[in-house]
Amino acid sequence: MIALQLDFGGFRTQETTMANETENSTELKSDRSQPMQTTRRKFLVKGVASAAPVILTVTSRPAMGGNFCTPSGFLSGNLSNPDDSRSCNGLSPGYWKNHFPDRFKHTRFSSLFGGVWVDGSGAAWNPDVTLKEVLHFRGHEDRYKFGTHAVATYLNAEYRTRLHYPMEVETVVDIVQQVLTTGVYTDPSTGLTMDAMEVKDFFEGTYH
């Protein structure tokens, strides 16, 4: 997408950075004290009651990478046109439920990921729940189905050589652990973050 050249000169610009926040704070505050008063209510009603998006991206840079099988690739390409034909060769929770590897049958979710997830009401799981049991959870037992997809993605990573699956076990574990402990995963290469639902969507996108 060609970047739109906008002339920002001639209008007051409010610039703020973490370093310059103090320097520019007065100007920023004074601008905020001059709201769109005459048309404020109209736009408020329009903004809240309408179905318009809260943020509309007018122009964006082209995607930095086309690899949607990694967190950075997924995050970088998310604002562009995702390639719906991509396949990362992963197997779904449904497959793993019916072909669960014996060697993991006693592995607890908490032992592997350093914590537990929650059910639909927000109540924490029993710390003794196993990976196999998670795959059999119904929707209300596993918020967003995050746990189910975490287990499936972990197993895909364990068998990544056979599956030609791009993510390593350490990466999957790190992603899940961050979500369990902080609520989000932060990708180190982009600085962008994903919450549990977004991570679930990302994991799901890596299946056949």
Binding site: L4, L6, M36, R40, F43, L44, K46, G47, V48, A52, P53, V54, I55, L56, T57, V58, T59, S60, R61, L79
Partner: peptide
């Protein structure tokens, strides 16, 4: 990137 923001945003 350039974004248009709603009043809420």
């Amino acid at each position: 990137n350039i974004h248009q923001l709603s009043p809420v945003a």
